[in-house]
Design a binder for these strands. Structure first.
Lengths: 158, 158
DNA sequence: TATTGTTATACTCTATAACTATA
DNA sequence: TATAGTTATAGAGTATAACAATA
């Protein structure tokens, strides 16, 4: 997987030079993300869930009664695109929705027992899948990395 | 931008709990990437280029004579999807292609002067755009972060 | 008037299969 | 037979506009 042994005209592998791209954090983040994402995708697909569905399920479990517009904000998914995900989770019996009595425009979302079990199982499998890549870092580096990602998201230095 | 002030039923902002997602590196990488990507996208769009086009242009400049299948490997873009990008770069006069005499199936790609100027200009603007986010880290943290990204991509520890 | 959930739609990215010309 | 570039196409994911119900 990903061996750089493309044949150049003389039959030797070409070493790719790069003076710019590797210095761009967006490019580097994308490459790292693309290492992880397909593995998470595959694990979740085994249970018929997409990544977005798993994310929604997880946030609903951690925030019982959350409504779609709040979920939309939290996960940065367009309200309109959330609809199909929520429908899917409900039809599979992983969450349920009921109208908020004080504001009948909104639906309070809660996970079912089945949904909670699904998340717990998939959390373990996803962590295992990520381990193939994240395991390249030792414990100190992992903590550093997650800390730096938090800093990038705007959390102030410790 | 991204203030978490969604109104809960009682009129106070809901604090979103998260016991699982934040511990998944894929989720965290995606969030960081989504902070950077739209900014790079916007800068490149000002010159009518997409991110993939800029990446290709840059690798072609650094590797004159590279052919499409090598570029495809280097950037992990499907050969078929590269075609439109290369066409675009050529039509805009940023690169040129000529058949490789020793293997007439292949086209050697090289950047024009105009292409090199375009890259130089866009490299500066992209770095500036990324700075809004990456600037949240100090110099030592930046070096650490890029180093850890390299480690994730499989480069052995120093 | 504004907001929530919804529908319809379009656009970009990405993936796959099959073709051609060359090797 | 295999490979490079190409075409066509389909599937995700994402973004926007407009609507009904409710506030």
């Amino acid at each position: 997987m990903s061996q750089p042994d493309e044949q150049a005209e003389d039959g030797t592998a070409r070493i790719i030079e790069d003076t710019v791209l590797g210095g761009l954090i967006g490019y580097r983040l994308k490459r790292a993300y693309m290492l992880i994402q397909p593995r998470a995708h595959a694990v979740l697909a085994e249970e018929g869930l997409r990544v977005a569905s798993f994310s929604c399920l997880s946030i609903i479990i951690d925030n019982p009664g959350i409504v779609q517009s709040e979920l939309s904000d939290a996960l940065q998914i367009e309200r309109s695109n959330l609809v199909v995900v929520i429908d899917e989770l409900e039809q599979r019996g992983l969450i349920s929705r009921k109208r908020v009595p004080t504001d009948r425009r909104r639906y309070a979302l809660t996970a079912t027992l089945r949904g909670r079990h699904m998340r717990d199982r998939l959390t373990k499998k996803t962590h295992l899948a990520e381990e193939v890549i994240f395991g390249r870092l030792n414990q100190e580096e992992r903590a550093q990395f997650l800390h730096l990602l938090e800093r990038l998201e705007g959390r102030p230095a410790r």
